[in-house]
Design a protein around this nucleic acid. Structure first.
Lengths: 195, 195
DNA sequence: GTCGACATGTAAATAGTTACATGATTCT
DNA sequence: AGAATCATGTAACTATTTACATGTCGAC
């Protein structure tokens, strides 16, 4: 196994619950893990192949008419690799936040443009929040309390909600500060003119 | 200009304030933008070269004894590129959160191990928070209120503090839930045994 | 009959990191 | 004398995405 290569664990983890095709894995990621983990087809299919040559998964073909789908199942070797991964402290995200970068250069840039950026992001975050809450309600009704996944899936959702709320709070604070600051500097200009 | 290539804006932005060498840019990133933007030498030096061939920066050599340092200055073309960038809505971060991925598989994994992961992360986040607050106080004393950068640099710091607080809150909630859940399931097991 | 979803895959490009390589200067 | 820091750079690798390519099936 190479240095990082996290995609493999995402895929192994999905197969832990039940055998799945590449396409199904992709769909689950799109529906359930989109806010913290995504993988494109171009990484899922080759990774499944790779895991099979390593003996971590095995596959069988299933046909619906002429249409083939390859169903992958995790092997004991695969389960072992997954279990090893869970023991290692999760790596912290490396943040690369373009908005913060722009803000950092705010003093040598245009304040109006910075404000515009903040408003656009605020709008997006509010939509994200709404979206999370919709998922939460539609989710709660679909999954039974006895499903052991529910607890954990709720936690990942809750993380999205809490982070989004924090972002919204921060954005509103920044906007406030910049707007006050703008008014203040306009006043100063006027006073200078009066003199 | 290619599709993304964000490093160039980070470097152009740094040069907006004053001419700098590659080494100095790296040091500033390490000290001021580490929590939302980093760049390694292996990306800074080639990028400065590239920007020079594009006419976005120009350089002169400066010697301290035999030791050369190349000081880069932004050109009008460079300033224009930066100004164009500030107009485009900042891209949202693509999150790849390994801890959330582990949590997502919690039901098919080992609860004790998941709890351990959460505790380790809680510890790290608390340290991060302390660190942010140290930077904030040491920062406040160093920079004059008249420095136009202060306002913006504080905002980027504040973002780190707010996000870290949100993470801590979420981690503590998750730990609580899992611990209660553990006690409850232990009880159920005991009751079953009694029967 | 055609559109959207199902289903699998490859090629090429991109972005970015780690490790390597070199040598000067300053501090202790 | 030796360690730490200053200072610049390249080679190799890794991971990952976009775009391309192909064809089936079901619904309207």
């Amino acid at each position: 196994m190479k240095k990082s290569d996290k995609s493999r664990f995402a895929i192994l983890g999905m197969l832990l619950r039940e055998p799945l095709s590449g396409y199904e894995i992709r769909k689950i990621m799109l529906n359930y893990t989109i806010h913290f983990w995504q993988e494109s087809d171009a990484s899922i299919y080759p990774m499944l192949k790779k895991l099979e040559t390593e003996g971590k998964v095995k596959s069988r073909s299933q046909y619906v008419g002429e249409r083939e789908s390859r169903i992958f199942e995790i092997t004991p070797a695969g389960k072992k690799e997954f279990a090893n991964w869970i023991e290692i402290p999760a790596e912290e995200e490396k943040h690369r936040n373009e908005l913060l970068l722009m803000l950092f250069f705010g003093a040598n840039s245009n304040k109006e443009k910075i404000l515009k950026q903040l408003f656009i992001r605020l709008q997006k975050e509010k939509e994200k929040k709404k979206n999370f809450e919709n998922i939460k309600t539609s989710f709660l009704s679909k999954i039974s309390d006895k499903d052991r996944n529910k607890l954990f899936w709720m936690m990942t959702l809750e993380n999205g909600i809490i982070s989004t709320n924090a972002d919204i709070k921060w954005l509103q604070e920044c906007i406030n500060i910049l707007q006050k600051n703008k008014l203040a500097s306009n006043k100063t200009k006027k006073e200078k003119k009066r003199k």
